[in-house]
Design a protein around this nucleic acid. Sequence first.
DNA 1: ACAAAAGTGTTCGATATACACCCATGT
DNA 2: ACATGGGTGTATATCGAACACTTTTGT
Lengths: 226, 226
Amino acid sequence: MGEDVGKDLSNFAKPYVTVDMVIFTIASSELKVLLVKRKVQPFKDKWVIPGGFVNIDQSLREAAMSKLAEKTGVKDVYLEQLYTFGDPKRDPRGRVITVSYFALISSEHIALKSSEEYNATWHSFTKLPPLAFDHKEIIDYAFKRLKWKFEYTTVAFSLLPKKFTMSQLQELYEIVFGTSFDKRNFRKKILSLKILEEQEVMRNVSFRPPQLYSLKANLGEIVNIL
Amino acid sequence: MGEDVGKDLSNFAKPYVTVDMVIFTIASSELKVLLVKRKVQPFKDKWVIPGGFVNIDQSLREAAMSKLAEKTGVKDVYLEQLYTFGDPKRDPRGRVITVSYFALISSEHIALKSSEEYNATWHSFTKLPPLAFDHKEIIDYAFKRLKWKFEYTTVAFSLLPKKFTMSQLQELYEIVFGTSFDKRNFRKKILSLKILEEQEVMRNVSFRPPQLYSLKANLGEIVNIL
DNA sequence: ACAAAAGTGTTCGATATACACCCATGT
DNA sequence: ACATGGGTGTATATCGAACACTTTTGT
């Protein structure tokens, strides 16, 4: 950093920068958040969302991706930057700014590996334990964003397996919004968007076999759903 | 930072953290962005959006507010965090992560002080000069957010004087969306939201004097406009 | 009187909501 | 045959879009 690139920056105090991730999934008809129990002070034995320091040569997204892989073993997920929290007192160890992300993992992926192997456990969003730092605030922010994204985009599909039934999709929306919808109107609405492709019909179920659908491949993200 | 607060953090490399602001206003029926010309390398003589390093004891929002006051002398503005840009190569001087903000300044405020006193000038959004770093990307991101906020919230009013006419409001929406609206439908829509209060009628104009309106005081931000 | 911008209503199509019964399968 | 969840249509209300003329003031 010599004269040729201009004034150097060495006299500015630097904060630490972390990424922290709110990872959602759906299991047992509930919205779940992945949490890790802290083993060290400060906030020993409290729960936190997964995260860690950003390597000096890593982009923020790469940092988030690597924390995610570390805790879940999963790579194919929806990942979006949320908000950056930078209150000078948010971490008692010093100035730590955290860039938060939110991630959605499909229920078909979480079954693949026990999340306990990764020292992380799923908690029902409605019954969260006490959280360290400002992580409750981060999760609340993430949930607002999740709801919003459900209304206006196709992110919902990243919480479902590749092939899913209309009822699964509807149940997902009902869990996230905490309300119930009329089956006929819901189906009508979704089909009118023309974002689904019919797949085969489900087999070996002891009731009328449901149609399976998949999301069309070539869609951009924002589609103005519901 | 002793044992009592746990493992200290001193062996993690720290990036620099800055805030950068996209400041919008409306003047001469155009959307304007405030830019500063760089006087030092790198990118000497290129334009940048206002910003600077975050003090170690300042919250991110405080840092943004103080940069804003520095460049515009204005305090009563809409200010919102946008996105955090952290590509390791975005600044040739080293690892610099920037938390971007966007701000809306009412046209009544920008007339108060010449922005040139503050070493910053307004540029038409449609004719931006070449920008340093990734600042073009930041501005584009801010503009997307601006449009979105115009659709779903009452932020538009922070670009107008306290009292304004329906035509001023409509013109503002037309500038931001780059389209024109039907006067009757626009008025109907806005009035149906019941977010305005009638003020006095404008005086001394050589045409039918328009009704002045103001935004009701007690509104939360999101109102689902248009 | 005229120039300039403000203000005003109705029709039509599209979209959203409310609502209840039959269907296909496995056991 | 029955239990289970899947699938379907119609009527009504609401909202958004299109569209052109009259009003009020200052000069």
